[in-house]
Amino acid sequence: MISKEHFKRPNNRLEGEQEPKVAALDAQDEQDLPVLVCPECKAAFDRDVREETDFVCPRCGALWQMSARERALWLADEGTFAEMDASLECADRLHFPGYAEKLAKTQRDTGEREGVVTGTAEIDGESCALFCMDPFFIMGSMGAAVGEKITRLFECALEKRLPVVGYTVSGGARIQEGMFSLLQMAKTSGAVMRHGNEGLFYVAVLTHPTTGGVVASFAMEADVILAEPLALIGFAGPRVIEQTLRQKLPEGFQRAEFLLQKGFVDRIVPRNEQKRELALLLKLNRKGADR
């Protein structure tokens, strides 16, 4: 498992430890405040800077975490993103203690029903099916609804003969849904396989952090696997490994650059290159006459 620390939103200036009372503001209010602070270098910026710099800190170059919806709208050509299954949400089948409350609070804080946004879109004019996971929704965990939405997306892409572009960010399977979340790994893998068997293209972009059951299923099943610079990518989280082995991990372990070197990632692509590279990959992987 990995820690909450891996899921940091670029903070509002007023959120920091110095002024804890303002941290209780709800998400809607935060959105209205004009200033944000880079969680890495602590420099303050105007909120509008995010879109202008592709959500990258202009001072230190840190990649700011993006919500699923921010990501989808940033990536898709203007006005082309058509969301699917927007109202789909999970059921608390196990009545896991505290889960219903946690889910309700997360939905309130994020304004999202679940941890992934799916739909169809165009990227530089190339049609595709798109999913973006949400780092702020229970640490991007995969519950039954996340698995269901991703499965439906691949099935829809198969029916419409569309390639799939998928942005992953996840702490792994959602504990509170027990085996219902674990088995989403099998379900999504089946959908990826069927889509691929029809000769359709799937490209994944692994963002910080992508771990656990998501790495051990659809994140690693793409035809082409891209990663964002410095993204933490691994099956086990670094803390679990340190606890198991009782030793410190080497610098850069499980980062995107490490996976590239070990042969598990095709390319590391900075934010401002992603749209162009994805569109190019979609074009190059088109079939025969469509080319």
Partner: peptide, 10 residues
């Protein structure tokens, strides 16, 4: 490890 498990699932 993740890739190995994912491949088996498919």
């Amino acid at each position: 490890q993740g890739q190995a498990i994912a491949e088996n699932l498919m």
